[in-house]
Amino acid sequence: MSRKNIIRTVREHCEPVVEELGYDLVDLEFVKENGSYFLRFYIGKTEGISIDDCQRVSEVVGDKLDELDPIEESYYLEVSSPGLDRPLKTDKDLKRNIGKDIEINLYKSIDGKKKYIGELLDFDKDYIKIREDNLMDKKLDREVISKIKLAVKF
């Protein structure tokens, strides 16, 4: 089975399990590193993720994966928090972060800038709307956005 199919199958069967436990499945990857395979679940919840959360999800998901057995190769199962600088990839990610400051990188310059930082106000399938520090609202076409992540301010 291809990696893409493995991810699709694992997501289809394990995302409901993760959500039943009270977490969001933020991202999922199946990669080969230094000769070993890793199946990584990145989970989130509003209050943040603890080691106990990761262990709980790992045990339940591990049992589900043993039942499904979708991966022929031996692999390591990892469950962790996605971290602060992870990309916001889905509408669910965006919805969870409305009102927070985000950083948007673009494929091409708009108004002489390839990076915008501001409060996430709204979004739809075509646009992301932010309020920059100068209190100006900016609507950016999603087609020109290369990456969105939470802005880390000190």
Score class of each variant (00 low, 15 high):
M1L: 03
T9R: 09
C14R: 05
Y23M: 10
Y23K: 08
Y23R: 11
L25W: 13
L25N: 03
D27P: 04
E29C: 08
K32N: 02
E33D: 04
S36L: 07
Y37D: 12
F38D: 02
F41N: 13
I43L: 10
E47T: 15
G48P: 09
I51Y: 11
Q55M: 08
R56S: 02
R56M: 12
R56I: 09
V57L: 01
V61P: 03
G62P: 05
K64H: 05
D66M: 04
E67K: 08
E67D: 04
I71P: 11
E72I: 06
E73K: 08
Y75M: 00
L77P: 06
E78W: 09
E78M: 03
L88R: 08
T90F: 12
K92T: 14
K92R: 15
K92G: 12
D93Q: 09
N97F: 02
I98Q: 10
G99R: 04
N105T: 04
Y107I: 00
I110K: 02
D111P: 05
G112H: 02
K114H: 01
Y116D: 02
I117P: 00
G118C: 04
L121V: 11
D124T: 00
I128F: 05
I128G: 13
M136G: 07
D137C: 13
K139T: 15
K139G: 05
D141V: 03
R142D: 08
R142N: 14
R142Q: 07
I145K: 00
S146K: 12
I148L: 09
L150H: 05
V152Q: 14
